[in-house]
Each structure stands twice: as C-alpha cells, then as structure tokens.
Computed example of a mutant assay.
Amino acid sequence: MHQGQMAVPAQNTWRRTLRTEFFPTDRRRDIDGLRGLAIIFVVLFHAGWLDGGFIGVDIFIVISGYFIGRSALVQQPFRPMRFVSRRLYRLLPALFCMVAVVSASMLWWVLQSDRADIALNGAYALVYLSNIWAAGHVGYFEGQSIAYPFLHTWSLSLEMQFYLVIFVMALALKYTHHRNRVLIGIFLVSSGCSLYSNHVGHTQGYYNILDRLWEFSLGSMIWIVPRPHLSRAVSNIVCGLGVAFLCGAAFIYPLGFACPSYMIALPCLAVMAIIICPQHDVARKVLGTISPIGVISYSIYLWHWPAIVLANYLLMFQVQGMVMGGVLVLVMIVSLLSYVGIERVFLDYEGRVSASVRNRGALALVGACGGLAMLLSYVSYVSRVH
C-alpha cells in the first residue's frame, strides 16, 4: 500500500515536469509551434524531401526579430549585461559542444583538403562569422555543400550580427526618440539591398546580413504596428490561412524563390500575421500541438546537418530513403539530450546565480569558444601547409 501511494505522486511529478518543460505556460505556444514548423521544414529540406523547406530559416528570422525587439527595444529599462549574458548562455554552450564533438569525430580521418576547410568553417562558426566564410566558399544549394558539417551555422551568425545591431540601437534609445524610424529605415535599406541582389543575380546574398536585416526588422516592427482588434472567427481564419500558406510554400517554392527574392516576403508576412493574431482555436490546436518540437528546435537545428553530412561521409553514398529516416530519428534523440543536458542546464544556471557570477560565466563561455576557434584555425593552417 505504501509503495502504491508513493508511485502516484512520483508519476504526477514527472508529468508536471514534462508539461512545464515542453508545454510552458509563460511562453506563447503558437510561436513555439511556428518554430516547430520551421525546423520541420528545414530538416525535411536538408533531407531532400521538401523542395521549399528553406523558408524555415526565414520563419526563424522573423520570430527572432520579434523576441529580440521586445527584449531590447520594448522592455524597459534595458539591461545591457543581462541581455548579452542571456544570449550567450542560450547559444554558446550547445554550439560549442556540437562543434567540438563533430570536429573530434571526423577531422582526424577526412582528407587534408577537407580537413582544412571544415576546421576553418568551424572556427568561423564559433565566432559567428560563418556566413562570411560561406559566402566566399560555397553556394548553399550546390552539391558540395554536403561536405561541410558546419555550413548551416551561417544563419546563427546572421542572428548574432542582428543582435549586435539591436544592442547598439537599445543603447542609443536614451539619446533618441526615433526608434520606430530607425527600424523602418533598416527595413527599407535592407529591402532595397535584397531586391538589388535579386535583380543582378547575386545569389551569395543568401548569406548577407544586409540582404536579411529586413526580415529581422519585420519581426521587430510587430511591436510598433497597431494591433488589430480581431474577432475569434477572423483570428482563426487569418491564422489558418497563414499556416496553410507556409505549408504550401514549403511544398511548391522553387530554389529560385530563396532570399534574395521578393517572393520570400510572402512567408515572412504570413509569420507576422500569425504572431499579431490573438491565440484562439487554430493557434492552440494546430501550432500548439507541435510546440514541443519548437522548444528543442535550436538543438535540432544544430545537430541535424552534421548528422546528415557524417552519414554521407561514413556510408560513402548519398543518404536517402529509409537510411535518411534512421539518421533523422537519431538526430531527434541527440537533440533532446542536447536540450535537456546542455541548453536547459546553462539557462537554469544563468537564471539563478548572482550578476557577477553570471557575467564571469559568460566571459568563460566566450573564452572557451575563442580557444576552440583558435585550435581549429591552427588545424586548418597545418592541413593546408602539408
């Protein structure tokens, strides 16, 4: 009897823990669902199963602009060190572990020419300049991209560069009252750069921060546009149409519609409309259902592409079909472990320690990433020399 009485509370505790972790009440589950949709698109695109899945990155960018715009421009007073440390604790530990594990797993047996490029790409990824490295080395949609396990970190570099722009804007807020005008100006200038790149056929603009800033600023501009007062029915229709369009675009968009392209504005506007809408039936039942995937989407993004690249290297043929399915199942397991064992651990630590300890920890994370970047740069240099 005593054992049975103890089992029920234990079971309830596990349920509460899982519900709190993957269905948090202090977050917008519809936006977590959008993240989940985005990572599904990206993973299926890289698996070769969804031609337009590249729009998942654009969805992530708009969402990132929305949340960072709130953290830096809306919530006052702005606390610079807390803003920086939160970003570092959120991003660096899992990125460091991914680069370290993948480097240790493959750099010692690949060809020297591949080792040199992979190590250098890893070094650039750790200092958030991977998009600059990629723009000078490989087209994202070209066949040789499968040789680089860190190529996907270009979008993380873009995100960190946008954080820097927003950080500077937030610091300047106390000296100016033209925040809205600056955001709109960034949107217009970046849109012009993107359209120009599309006009001249500059495909490497895919990696360029100037060609992408309009997507980030579009997300941040959600905070300055008037919120419409929509009825429950209208909100459900708008949200439903937005989700349907995103799914349709993921299936039918050709590679030519990838940024820089005016067609990529449509999925971004759909994301903006979904975020603006109040959360009603469609948001809760459709997007809320896949919100747990969105919660661990960062870890999935980090680990899925290296797993696909490693599988192609080890098996020496293009991975597809059932083999690709097995790889993706393994990715989900590793990503869940990464989220629970790395992401949450560091975020929880950041939230409970004092400011001085938190800041020293952030510096240690930066130092660790810098040290590994220097080591990989040395490996790249030695591999090229010999």
Rank of each mutant, 00 (worst) to 15 (best):
L34I: 00
L188M: 10
M374F: 13
I308N: 00
I146A: 07
N312I: 13
L18S: 09
I55N: 08
S190N: 12
S235R: 04
L95K: 04
R384E: 01
C239Y: 04
A307I: 01
A249Q: 13
I276K: 11
I132W: 02
Y313I: 14
G33H: 03
C239R: 04
V110D: 06
A355S: 03
G33D: 08
G325H: 12
N359W: 06
L337G: 11
L375W: 09
R28Q: 05
P306A: 00
Q161C: 04
R90V: 00
H2K: 06
Q144T: 09
N180H: 10
V282A: 01
L171D: 15
Y89C: 03
L126E: 03
R87N: 05
H2D: 10
P9M: 15
M81V: 14
D58H: 10
L44S: 03
R227V: 15
R352G: 01
I290H: 01
S103G: 05
L158R: 08
I252G: 10
R360T: 13
V101M: 08
V102N: 09
N359G: 00
F23N: 04
R284G: 07
L88K: 04
F216Y: 11
Y207R: 10
P9S: 15
Q75T: 15
A362L: 00
S85V: 13
A7F: 09
I293A: 02
F167N: 13
P260V: 03
D26K: 13
F150D: 11
S71E: 07
L241V: 08
A270Y: 15
P93A: 04
Y89T: 01
A134F: 08
R115T: 13
V366S: 03
A72I: 14
G205M: 03
F257S: 10
L246R: 05
S217I: 12
L95S: 01
S380T: 05
V110N: 04
Q318I: 15
A10V: 05
Q279E: 14
H280D: 02
F150C: 12
F346A: 02
S145N: 12
V366P: 00
Q279A: 05
W109R: 02
I296M: 07
S297D: 10
E215A: 09
I55T: 12
G367I: 15
L156R: 06
A270D: 07
R87W: 00
P254D: 14
P306C: 02
V101N: 05
F22H: 01
A307H: 01
C247L: 09
A123Q: 07
S377M: 13
P254Y: 11
C369M: 02
D281F: 07
M322H: 14
N121P: 01
R19M: 14
V382N: 08
F141E: 11
C268A: 10
G288P: 00
I166K: 03
R284I: 04
S155P: 03
S291W: 04
L246E: 06
I209N: 05
S145R: 11
R90T: 00
